[in-house]
Simulated assay, not measured.
Amino acid sequence: MTTKVKHIAVLTSGGDAPGMNAAIRAVVRSCSYYNIKCSGVFKGYEGLIHNQIEELNARSVRNIINKGGTFLKSARSKDFRAVEGRQKAYANLKKNNIDALVVIGGDGSFTGALKLSEEFNFPVVGIPGTIDNDINGTDYTIGYDTALNTVVEAIDKIRDTASSHNRLFLIEVMGRDAGDIALNAGIGAGAEEILIPEENMGIDRLIESLKKSKKTGKTSSIIVVAEGDTSGKNIFELGQYVEEHLDGYEVRVSVLGHIQRGGAPSCYDRVLASKLGVGAVEALLEGKSEVMIGIVHKTVTIVPLKEALDKRIHKHDMLIKVADITSV
């Protein structure tokens, strides 16, 4: 493996996701393995602009593989959206003799990385880290599996209350543009209905479905709602409408919110993050840039960042069919 890259920096950007620390660890230790320098950028692109950069070694990342969040911190940067901000970031990269950058984050983070690379001819590689699993070119993103398990565990506990009191619970989960969490967690937790942005079933159909379920003997119900679903202006309005048009249930609303982001990463996320972290360093050492390291059919792959930023085509037909069949 021949390369001119002698110093790689790594940062996390956007919303945190369980497994980001494992990815940072893999990047740092891969650099150590290949005998090149590694630095961590604190607070994402904002830290890059303000030169919050520290050299890391293999011991710097000990005991973090099991930790949620990101020890490098994350922040959204308005300044980086401007050319002047990216110029400052690039100047700090050169000031610290950094040859390439690994960016762990989602589509917003990748957009920034691509602009930095295009404007200053600076090598960048992205690692997909977001609980929404909404990045094109990879089957899974870091944090998604952990978030799913967190959501299922929460719904299991809510179901205990629902069944004890003949209640209908509407549970909102994250997913502004993608229904992956809602659909998979809903099936895994045995939800009666699942509402996602990609499939607008309509309020009337929802009411009819719930009435049918009640006639078959169901005394409680769980409806999982992705935050991007448009059946109502918000989940509270949706809950009120359901209560007004459906007799026999007490309706309750539960918004899981940021609990979905936290917690120790699952084994799957730790292993995935480790694979992608190693892959990112090796891609840079092979002279690649403006690419994302993903996982497709259990194989680590390299995808152009522009392709990763394309709108993902969600194919949920099979899962929707499974949800419909198993919720009768």
Rank of each mutant, 00 (worst) to 15 (best):
residue 248 G to W: 14
residue 254 S to W: 00
residue 157 K to M: 11
residue 81 R to V: 14
residue 111 T to V: 01
residue 307 E to M: 00
residue 279 G to S: 08
residue 172 E to K: 09
residue 53 I to E: 04
residue 150 T to F: 02
residue 73 K to Y: 15
residue 155 I to A: 08
residue 284 L to A: 06
residue 139 D to F: 03
residue 289 S to K: 12
residue 195 L to E: 08
residue 314 H to G: 00
residue 111 T to D: 03
residue 101 L to F: 02
residue 57 N to T: 09
residue 289 S to I: 00
residue 149 N to Q: 13
residue 156 D to P: 01
residue 210 L to I: 14
residue 37 K to W: 03
residue 2 T to M: 10
residue 6 K to P: 05
residue 180 D to W: 15
residue 278 V to G: 08
residue 50 H to I: 02
residue 103 V to G: 03
residue 261 R to H: 12
residue 22 A to N: 01
residue 172 E to Q: 14
residue 250 E to L: 03
residue 271 V to M: 15
residue 75 A to M: 08
residue 240 Q to T: 12
residue 205 R to G: 10
residue 81 R to G: 07
residue 249 Y to C: 05
residue 191 A to I: 07
residue 240 Q to F: 08
residue 37 K to S: 05
residue 188 G to S: 11
residue 182 A to T: 06
residue 262 G to K: 13
residue 160 D to F: 12
residue 64 I to K: 07
residue 37 K to I: 02
residue 10 V to G: 03
residue 102 V to L: 02
residue 301 T to A: 05
residue 2 T to Q: 11
residue 220 S to F: 15
residue 236 F to K: 03
residue 24 I to F: 03
residue 171 I to K: 00
residue 164 S to Q: 07
residue 318 M to H: 02
residue 287 G to I: 01
residue 194 I to Q: 00
residue 281 V to I: 10
residue 222 I to Q: 09
residue 135 I to C: 13
residue 266 S to G: 15
residue 140 Y to P: 07
residue 322 V to S: 00
residue 61 V to C: 09
residue 322 V to E: 00
residue 76 R to G: 07
residue 29 R to D: 03
residue 289 S to N: 02
residue 166 N to Q: 11
residue 229 D to P: 09
residue 203 I to V: 15
residue 230 T to G: 15
residue 276 L to V: 05
residue 232 G to Q: 04
residue 77 S to M: 02
residue 79 D to S: 13
residue 5 V to C: 12
residue 90 Y to T: 09
residue 48 L to S: 02
residue 223 I to T: 11
residue 251 V to N: 06
residue 60 S to Q: 05
residue 124 V to Q: 11
residue 288 K to A: 06
residue 6 K to A: 14
residue 25 R to W: 09
residue 49 I to K: 02
residue 286 E to A: 08
residue 136 N to T: 12
residue 69 G to F: 10
residue 157 K to N: 14
residue 47 G to N: 06
residue 120 F to D: 09
residue 209 S to M: 13
residue 307 E to V: 00
residue 305 L to I: 01
residue 261 R to W: 12
residue 233 K to T: 12
residue 20 M to H: 06
residue 220 S to G: 07
residue 293 I to Y: 00
residue 309 L to W: 01
residue 92 N to R: 01
residue 198 E to W: 09
residue 73 K to P: 08
residue 76 R to I: 04
residue 73 K to L: 12
residue 308 A to L: 01
residue 183 L to V: 10
residue 25 R to D: 04
residue 187 I to L: 14
residue 303 V to M: 06
residue 120 F to I: 14
residue 136 N to G: 08
residue 87 Q to M: 08
residue 277 G to R: 08
residue 106 G to H: 01
residue 96 N to G: 04
residue 37 K to Q: 10
residue 175 G to C: 10
residue 317 D to W: 04
residue 59 R to Y: 14
residue 135 I to T: 12
residue 36 I to P: 04
residue 208 E to N: 15
residue 138 T to E: 04
residue 154 A to T: 11
